[in-house]
Design a protein around this nucleic acid. Sequence first.
DNA 1: ATCATTGCAAACTGTTTGCATCAAG
DNA 2: CTTGATGCAAACAGTTTGCAATGAT
Lengths: 147, 147
Amino acid sequence: MSKKPEKTRDLLHSFGLRYSKPRNIILDYFHEKDRHTSAEHLFYDLKDRGHNLSLSTVYLNLSVLKNAGLIRELKGAMGEAIFDSNLSPHHHLVCEQCGEVMDVPIFTVAGEKPTYLLKAHAEQATGWKVKEPRLELRGLCPTCQNT
Amino acid sequence: MSKKPEKTRDLLHSFGLRYSKPRNIILDYFHEKDRHTSAEHLFYDLKDRGHNLSLSTVYLNLSVLKNAGLIRELKGAMGEAIFDSNLSPHHHLVCEQCGEVMDVPIFTVAGEKPTYLLKAHAEQATGWKVKEPRLELRGLCPTCQNT
DNA sequence: ATCATTGCAAACTGTTTGCATCAAG
DNA sequence: CTTGATGCAAACAGTTTGCAATGAT
């Protein structure tokens, strides 16, 4: 099932990263299909498949891959880090009960009348029940912009 | 500086909560002006003012007050819980560098052309540099809605 | 008198780090 | 050979919990 290591090696190199077996395994995992996974979940999933990476290696490489831009990070239902290999621009729907994460195309969410239609659109398009969206935008405050 | 305890007692009672000195102190803190604070920050702030609540009491009461609807929770720059006593609907701008949190009125953010104007509007209105907003909506997936 | 709240310490979860060993380039 | 990656264990931060003492109603 796994891609040819040379492929992965080239991919890593093109991002300025070294090849390693763990990285190959992790990238294979993500490339099988778009996945949303936490470090721990990935760790156990890989263990089930006979890949005994250490947990710290998993953490380390998720962070490396994220910094290289090969995967994206979001926050799960409990605030844990969730990694997503789908790089195309999209939003996320996170189930507060089971933790399930679903991708939401940006243009379904971004209707003409944002705050209200956001919720309605997303609910209609996905069947989820969406909590009142309170945005928590990240950025740099004026002071920190000059630092 | 602190409000009359009877006031706070009545407030707490009206929310079905018992009065206690820690709750009084914490509510006083929040009501002095709208504040954004983490549990730990609150703990030290109160210590500086001579109120030696235990950290677990601070955590417990923030959670109690939040569940009662007297304060709101959001996630800070590092994913820590930040509590906000401003209950009117608004969004937040969180500085990734210094952790500063700023309120953003909903209608400044929610323009006519959401995804794009969101960023532009917010930046223009606040002077912040806003990272591309990726929404992480919370809700219930179809399965969990029937549980 | 009853039952919730407090404070302390210990437990826990998610994540990071130090360091000796090992593999990639 | 040089530098970066691994794996383990220990360290950490933020938060929660168990429990006996205390305080509110």
